[in-house]
């Protein structure tokens, strides 16, 4: 397996706040990765860095053998932002068409793609309603649909399951596993710990550093607990102790 995304000694700070501290990381083709951490630890910054949307203080990021930022590579990344960036005066379908247009989706495939992704997120009956009339969860699902629209080899999802009801969340994860099986590289950030039980690699981010990087089951056994949530609490305690010393 080849590396799809590589971070080399990446650092980024906003003023005094060191959000990413010298992070090095390789993500292999076809991995489904859960990026977890409390809010404000830099998950979104890391996603933005991979997309090339922020200027790094130091380090280098390579995606599909291209050094970021690179405009063409963006065409191979399906991205869902943490906040719903949607055009509220347009309908769901028009939003999908618009973003597909930016990704240069040809017309014939587009209709099938819109049908496919709207079914995944269960919006097929609300596509012609204006987004201003959508609920928070529906907007989240539309954002997810947009990320999946171009059938990109890399998918970056920033908090995709926030505000989605449990039933649909299960459905979304089932879909992500399906995409995973079809060979796509997926990074999902979340702070819902039990979600990452599904992934094949957990990256735990805390204070700008990756403090754990392993299979979820491996982490659980290492820390002698039975859920990722507890691993998370334990690492927190350990961190607190180490900073006490």
């Amino acid at each position: 397996m080849t590396n799809v995304i590589t971070l080399e000694k990446v650092s980024k700070s906003f003023g005094q706040n060191h959000v990413l501290k010298n992070i090095s990381l390789q993500i292999k083709n076809g991995q489904l990765i859960g990026l977890i951490g409390p809010s404000g630890t830099g998950k979104t910054t890391m996603i933005a860095a991979i997309l090339g949307m922020i200027k790094l203080d130091s380090g280098k990021i390579t995606v599909l053998d291209k050094s970021m930022p690179n405009r063409e590579v963006l065409g191979k990344i399906g991205y869902m932002a943490q906040s719903d960036a949607l055009y509220t005066s347009l309908s769901g379908r028009e939003n999908l068409r618009f973003f597909a247009g930016l990704m240069k989706q040809p017309g014939e495939i587009l209709r099938d793609q819109i049908k496919r992704v709207s079914e995944i997120v269960d919006l097929q009956d609300s596509l012609d309603i204006r987004v201003s009339n959508y609920s928070g969860g529906m907007k989240r699902r539309l954002s997810l649909a947009i990320a999946l629209l171009a059938n990109s080899p890399i998918i970056l999802l920033d908090e995709p399951t926030v505000g989605i009801d449990p039933e649909l969340r299960v459905q979304v994860w089932a879909e992500l596993r399906k995409l995973h099986k079809s060979g796509k590289t997926i990074i999902v950030t979340t702070h819902v710990m039990d979600e990452v039980e599904h992934v094949d690699r957990v990256l735990m981010l805390r204070n700008g550093q990756i403090i754990a990087d392993d299979l979820p089951q491996k982490l659980e056994s290492d820390y002698k607990v039975n859920s990722i949530e507890k691993v998370f609490i334990k690492t927190g305690e350990k961190n607190a102790h180490s900073s006490d010393l």
Partner: peptide
């Protein structure tokens, strides 16, 4: 302010 501009720029648009 709605973030759509940032979102636009995560696509390969020039």
């Amino acid at each position: 302010t709605t973030g759509t501009l940032g979102r636009l720029l995560t696509s390969p648009v020039k």
